[in-house]
């Protein structure tokens, strides 16, 4: 068992500075209780990857991370035979044909490592949407049965089921089959109240009033029709920036000067300046 109840999830995640709301706490709890992978989807910078890290940290489990990218294949994700070593062995001993497909020559990749791990493990499959569609097929077997078939060695079944978190930015729709096997958690932008608490958890030196002001400003910015809404990570960056500048208040001048921390498009900056009535630098 990973967690006993959603409330316990909330408490333990809070102890590692991750503030969970009802949705996060319940799905993190269920993923552990039902032994199903958790798919966290949402815009960039809302704490999807951080969630997996926080779960690992809060439970003292080992974190194994598989970063997805275009062109990721079985050899990088699952396992590979160390063929150089195999060649050397055959050259050294002509009768070695029998034992070159053994443990010694197997290169573990993240997925296999997570399945064979005998300690509690959190497997983070990051940015699943960046990988090609074939990789999803590979994941299906692993995520539903937690087993891997290696032709030369046989089927390897997980000793302990790892806690699996998949993240996606939704740049493409993941397949129905994959979604069906996962619990789904949509991570969106938080309410200003929650965002204020997150900022204070991340930057404890920030005055509470300023954090409140910051969270409200960012909520207003997200209400505008921008190309790219500011993420939580960017709000936290903004808080750090203000702290580094030694500012204790967020007035128009400071806001206009530091808007670049949260808005990275020129048109977004001018739109925000216009809507909020800021002086253009």
């Amino acid at each position: 068992m990973w967690f006993a109840s959603p409330d316990e999830v909330r408490g333990r995640l809070a102890s590692v500075d991750y503030l969970a709301d009802d949705g996060i706490a319940t799905s993190v709890f269920l993923a552990g209780a039902l032994g199903k992978p958790l798919l966290a989807e949402g815009p960039a910078g809302v704490g999807k990857t951080q969630l997996a890290k926080a779960v690992a940290q809060a439970t003292g489990a080992r974190l194994i991370r598989l970063q997805c990218y275009e062109g990721l294949d079985e050899a990088r994700a699952l396992y590979e035979w160390n063929y150089k070593k195999q060649l050397l062995r055959i050259q050294a001993d002509g009768d070695a044909w029998e034992d070159i497909f053994s443990e010694e020559f197997l290169l573990e990749r993240p997925l296999l490592r997570a399945i064979r791990s005998d300690e509690p493990t959190v497997l983070l499959i990051d940015e699943t949407d960046k990988a090609d569609v074939e990789v999803e097929g590979l994941l299906l077997e692993i995520l539903s049965d937690f087993q891997v078939t290696i032709p030369e060695l046989g089927t390897i079944t997980a000793i302990r089921r790892p806690y699996v978190v998949l993240t996606s930015n939704a740049t493409r729709e993941l397949s129905e089959a994959l979604k069906r096997r996962c619990l789904y958690l949509h991570l969106g932008y938080p309410s200003p109240e929650r965002e204020r608490d997150i900022v204070l958890a991340q930057v404890p030196e920030l005055p509470g009033l300023l954090a409140e002001r910051l969270a409200r400003t960012v909520a207003t910015l997200r209400g505008l029709e921008l190309k790219k809404s500011p993420s939580i990570a960017e709000t936290v960056d903004w808080a750090r920036t203000l702290l580094a500048l030694g500012r204790t208040d967020l007035d128009e001048g400071v806001m206009a000067a530091t808007l670049g921390v949260v808005l990275k498009h020129d048109s977004d900056q001018s739109r925000a300046a216009k809507e909020l009535g800021l002086p253009r630098p």
Binding site: S27, L30, Y184, L185
Partner: peptide, 9 residues
């Protein structure tokens, strides 16, 4: 949230 996590994808 339990229903949402299992049914709404």
């Amino acid at each position: 949230e339990a229903y949402a996590a299992t049914l709404v994808k």
